[in-house]
């Protein structure tokens, strides 16, 4: 089963859950691990069996989808977490990215977009939007402005190229155009985005540790 991508769906709305499940089922290279409707079920499924992709709604009846994402990333470091939002508004997306998600999907996406996003993720890329790019840039520049802040660690600072990519995304340019403008391949742009998300996750974890130590919780 190495060729098949195992997908776990956590979505409380039965209609959407059904829709996502049928999209996954209809595709030959995807395997549906489970389709559940709550945080608790999602986490217990993750503990029971591995998954390659987690498709998770943020607003779940018994908790925050970001917690499921965080737990999934902890249990299965190779897992790609994809959060589902209705509008792609930046506050929700940023929260899930910081929890370790590497992508997000609009609920009304067409099945083709749906499949394309999962494939992009598995291929090492990540979806992004201009507002998210801008917010990520702000997040990192704020960290570097605080002299005692956690983001001073160079391993979680953005590289010059990553900043360029984000800058172009924030102006509305898409992957192929950015690749063209920067003279790099489309795939490199995609992996830049995924790296940026991972740095965001690490830096937000560092920030949490920093905050905790500042508050003498650690």
């Amino acid at each position: 089963m190495t060729g098949s991508t195992r997908i776990l769906i956590v979505e409380d709305d039965p209609a959407f859950r059904q829709r996502f499940a049928s999209i996954v089922a209809s595709h030959p290279s995807f395997t549906l691990v489970a389709a559940v409707g709550s945080c608790a079920e999602g986490i217990s499924e993750l503990r029971r069996q591995p998954a390659d992709v987690l498709l998770c709604d943020l607003g779940l009846p018994d908790g925050d989808g970001a917690d499921v994402v965080r737990e999934a990333r902890r249990l299965h470091p190779g897992l790609d977490a994809l959060v589902v939002t209705i509008f792609g508004d930046e506050a929700h997306v940023m929260r899930s990215l910081e929890a370790g998600a590497t992508g997000y999907l609009l609920k009304d996406s067409l099945p083709e977009d749906f499949i394309a996003t999962i494939r992009l993720l598995r291929a090492g890329g990540s979806p992004i939007h201009p507002t998210i790019a801008r917010r990520v840039l702000q997040q990192f520049s704020r960290g570097s402005r605080e002299p005692l802040g956690p983001s001073i660690d160079p391993s979680v600072a953005l590289s010059g190229r990553e900043q360029e990519v984000l800058n172009l995304v924030s102006k509305g340019y898409r992957g192929p155009e950015i690749a063209n403008l920067l003279g790099i391949s489309h795939h490199t742009v995609a992996s830049h985005i995924k790296n940026i998300y991972k740095k965001l996750e690490v830096s937000s974890r560092g920030e949490a540790v920093y905050e905790a130590s500042r508050l003498r919780l650690l």
Partner: peptide, 13 residues
């Protein structure tokens, strides 16, 4: 620009 970019991302498909 960012908001126009968002619009573009939505419209391009």
């Amino acid at each position: 620009l960012t908001l126009l970019g968002n619009l573009r991302y939505r419209l391009s498909d």
